[in-house]
Amino acid sequence: MGVALGAGLAVSIAGIGGGIGMGVAGGKAFEAIARQPEVGGDVRTLLFITLAFIETLTIYGLVIAFMLVGKI
């Protein structure tokens, strides 16, 4: 029971943080591209790298959740 709850909490709390961070990063990138469309390529590359870094933190939560599910 506790382990199942922990698995759910691990991935959901990690998802909240990652979602907020990705939303802020993506929104700012769109603002930048809308203001200066000629730097679109550079911003897009940087955005992908940033999103990958943010996503990793969420994925850490997911991996922990899988480990916990394996223990049930």
Binding site: I59, L62, F66
Partner: peptide
């Protein structure tokens, strides 16, 4: 470590 977990976690999670 982060390169490992990022690729593995994404593909494994998606397959799951």
């Amino acid at each position: 470590l982060s390169l490992t977990v990022r690729l593995f976690g994404n593909i494994f999670g998606e397959e799951m």
